[in-house]
Design a protein around this nucleic acid. Structure first.
Lengths: 127, 127
DNA sequence: CCGCATCCAACGAGATACTG
DNA sequence: CAGTATCTCGTTGGATGCGG
């Protein structure tokens, strides 16, 4: 996809000019990729406490999720470098999940999103 | 938000995490609902320029999207009060899409997300 | 207790063609 | 130009059962 010059000049004064729509869109797609799925954000939110949580802890915290989805999303986020997986070779087995530093750095951004969601006006307003 | 410190039927017993994950989870799910889909964020990003864009403008800006998806996501966001739809009864027809004030207020949060994505370290570190 | 594999249902999403 | 309708397909997600 070659770069056509868009009119979508998202170029506020404070932002670098390299924030072109296509780069931005790529970034957007990266974000979408990493946060896609019905459960990623929910899992993340339970991890934002900063403590390591066991698999069963997460299962208990999110009753609506299936094991498959839980492990799947967890693994994907681990691959993305968002969550950590700590295996204790014990009997019975014990695996704890937590956030990487980068994953923790997501917290304020998500919080902004949450606040945005809560700020929804009941009045369908105009731009 | 009033003091909704009650449990919602989750975790019948004992030891919920310290920071109210349930209230938060609800908010998270709202966000997920409103921003889900492969194209919402991309469309939003093209709308953040602040100018009204025609349907065909968006089609041109996002070549990979189909008309069906474009109109669908647009309508959903309109229902959610994120985007505006301005119909000019002319020949040929002309419909312009833009952001509501609330939709525009999403910009910084998304920007934070973008910056987070760009800040991904090559080194998968531990917390 | 943790995780994987398989089967299966339900949407999401794309292509195409048609209408106002 | 803007939007709708229909069909199909791939993916996501859920249920269950087994293995370390």
């Amino acid at each position: 996809m070659a770069s056509t010059h868009e009119k979508v000049g998202y170029a506020p004064e404070g932002k670098p000019p390299e924030h072109t729509p296509f780069t931005a869109a790529s970034g957007v797609e990266s974000v979408v990729r990493m946060l896609e799925g019905r459960w990623k954000l929910v899992i993340l939110f339970h991890l934002f406490g900063g403590k390591l949580l066991r698999f069963s802890d997460l299962e208990r915290a999110i009753p609506a999720i299936s094991q498959k989805m839980l492990i799947q999303q967890l693994r994907q986020m681990e691959s993305d470098g968002i969550v950590t997986r700590l295996v204790h070779h014990q009997v019975p087995p014990k695996v704890e999940y937590g956030l990487t530093a980068w994953g923790q750095s997501l917290c304020p951004a998500l919080d902004a999103l949450l606040q945005w969601a809560e700020a929804r006006p009941a009045d369908p307003d105009a731009p």
